[in-house]
């Protein structure tokens, strides 16, 4: 049975507490949230197999640290949507503000519009698919996981990147320190095609380029000083 929360009538605290009261091994539950009106921290900290549909725009940190749940935002998302998410799926039907999916450890984040600056910053295993373009410093210090961009990327893409993978269909205004283009091998094409399919994004994997770390900044060495420029 679907649970309906109208945030124009019910305090956010009651919604989040109700979601937190669901046990991790509970049966799947269905939630519909209306009138979010840019509220912050909507549906954050879920750890249960819930299907959460949010009808409208949300503020900062929606679905933060999500585990298991499938959260769909039928609108735009503010800063840090799905920050540090661990598993499950978060889908933004509109655009996302800065730091989308920041430090995410696992699961899948799909942004059907554009994402602003620092998308996928410090990634730790999450996969992000952006149907549009991303802003500057996206993939900064990204450690694990992947960032797929079907549009273009702003300045300093993948700056100081570690072992995360960036797939870009359009153009990057500029690559960041220690970020280089890498071969798009068969294994990467297979991985990317499967990820695009999971994200329900219609794009051809072979149209993308792959970027990753040149690994020049992995050790302090005066000979690598130019890599910081």
């Amino acid at each position: 049975m679907e649970q309906l929360f109208d945030l124009a009538q019910t305090p956010l605290r009651e919604l989040n507490q109700a979601l937190h009261d669901c046990l991790p091994d509970a049966a799947e539950s269905v939630w519909r949230i209306v009138n979010p009106k840019g509220e912050h921290a909507v549906a954050c900290g879920i750890d249960t197999p819930a299907d959460v549909q949010i009808q409208g725009h949300v503020g900062y940190y929606c679905a933060g640290m999500n585990k298991q749940a499938h959260v769909v935002i039928h609108g735009n998302a503010g800063t840090g949507v799905a920050e540090n998410m661990m598993s499950g799926l978060v889908r933004v039907k509109g655009n996302a503000s800065q730091s989308a999916g920041a430090t995410g450890h696992g699961g899948l984040l799909v942004i059907e519009g554009n994402a602003a600056a620092r998308c996928g910053i410090s990634l730790k295993g999450l996969d992000i698919v952006v149907r549009g373009s991303v802003g500057h410093m996206s993939g900064f210090m990204a450690q694990r996981g992947s960032l797929v961009i079907c549009g273009d990327a702003g300045h300093a893409l993948g700056d100081s990147i570690y072992e995360a993978k960036i797939f870009l269909k359009g153009k990057a205004q500029e690559l960041g320190a220690d970020c280089v283009e890498k071969e798009l091998a068969e294994e990467h094409l297979t991985f990317l095609a499967a990820l695009l399919e999971s994200a329900e994004v219609d794009a051809d994997a072979s149209d993308f380029r792959r970027y990753g770390s040149a690994r020049c900044l992995y050790h302090f060495d005066i000979d690598n000083a130019d890599a910081y420029a």
């Binding site: 954050c44 900062y60 840090g80 730091s99 920041a102 620092r118 910053i121 410090s122 900064f140």
Partner: peptide, 29 residues
């Protein structure tokens, strides 16, 4: 590898953002 930690937080950029971040952490817990 020589690990360098970030010097600034990845998902907030000033005191007004920090207030919202703290509210998220409170909601989470």
């Amino acid at each position: 590898i020589d690990q360098r930690s970030a010097c600034r937080h990845p998902d907030w950029t000033g005191p007004d953002d920090l207030e919202i971040k703290i509210r998220e952490l409170r909601e989470l817990t």
